[in-house]
Design a protein around this nucleic acid. Sequence first.
DNA 1: GGCAAGGGTTACTTGCGGTAACAACAGTGT
DNA 2: ACACTGTTGTTACCGCAAGTAACCCTTGCC
Lengths: 219, 219
Amino acid sequence: METARGAERQPSAARSRRRELLEAADRVVLRDGPKASMNAIAAEAGITKPILYRHFGDKGGLYRALAKRHTDALLSALRAALDAPADRRKRVESTLDTYLAAIEARPQVYRFLMHPSDSPAGTATPAEQGFDVGRHSAPLLRRLGEELGQVIAERVDLGPDSEQTARIWGHGIVGMMHAAGDWWLGDRPCSRERLVSSLADLLWGRLAAAGDLQGGPGF
Amino acid sequence: METARGAERQPSAARSRRRELLEAADRVVLRDGPKASMNAIAAEAGITKPILYRHFGDKGGLYRALAKRHTDALLSALRAALDAPADRRKRVESTLDTYLAAIEARPQVYRFLMHPSDSPAGTATPAEQGFDVGRHSAPLLRRLGEELGQVIAERVDLGPDSEQTARIWGHGIVGMMHAAGDWWLGDRPCSRERLVSSLADLLWGRLAAAGDLQGGPGF
DNA sequence: GGCAAGGGTTACTTGCGGTAACAACAGTGT
DNA sequence: ACACTGTTGTTACCGCAAGTAACCCTTGCC
């Protein structure tokens, strides 16, 4: 049976082809943003659609592969910031800044990653009525949240049930970072440093510490 | 010229029709989630597509109208929680809980609201190449963030430049709430009360106050 | 030469957003 | 009574993007 040998003939060829395709996809996403079409990506790669489908199954597959690349890159950068030898406040600030610098540098890629553009579930099978409630948010945020939660659980002493608290905080902090970053990217109302320090202040409990102002409720 | 009189003839009729259409849209969104198609909505309303387009312009218009309804409702509930006569911590917890209860009650609607499904820019005018960088996040979150920022600016004493800090915090807190809620809605790893109190703890600076654990960086 | 395996293409189907063109009915001026 | 205009609705279509079926053309092995 030479089929097995033939199938595993040149795995590096397929791998490198895949890399080429992903880089082409990267380029067109960088150019067209989240509305990059399969046709456009194929054209950029110098081939036609069916090949993309042979490699990635469907658009979601390509999306996942692309997202994994960028998420991995971003995550390793964030890990580095998180692991810097400094006090906790500095590490938090540096992590926030790393994230914001990343989305500032390549907003198109960032937008693409946050836009899963719906799963193609409702195509052939009309019986696919089981709607998966929840789970709509970009996988990137989920992963970041999980990872951050793990880091917090490893490093910070949170008393009983710390595992769960850490997960909650991980997702919460990532969401804070994301939403603030997204807003900031649109209006650019202040410098990055300002944003970073304000968010760190928020996490540092300045909301709890601040005094009331005139005209409060029940007044 | 009777055209002006004719145009303003029965504004109530058009208004009530619009309400009917929106309620039909609501029903189908509640049933089909964010992938509700214009055809389906029209069918549910007992009419056909072009009428929807006459009333709302395009899918984005219908989306905006629908979003406004729910956002207004949610916002007034949140305002009530925010204005309750209690201390700040209690108010924050109650606001978080209100939001989470809302998304828990109607996850399909919530998912639809978070999915703007791309602006229809690339239809007739191929010259519309100017990609609006940033600004992808759901308008709902933007509005919530702005409103919360305003409330914070009105009520909390943040020293100099408080306006900007309050806006940043508004968007940050809303993002935290949203991301944590989205994650929680998927896995349901804990009760709502637990989630609320953990998030409030986070905002109350417990991250800053907690001690280090073994195995930290630079150790 | 024969022949399986892939890489590659053209041409198609399906589904959706969006639109034109047309049909029926109300009120109004003459 | 009758044409005229505006509203409400329809059918039938366009364009586009995802995804697929069927067919080529090269390459290496016997």
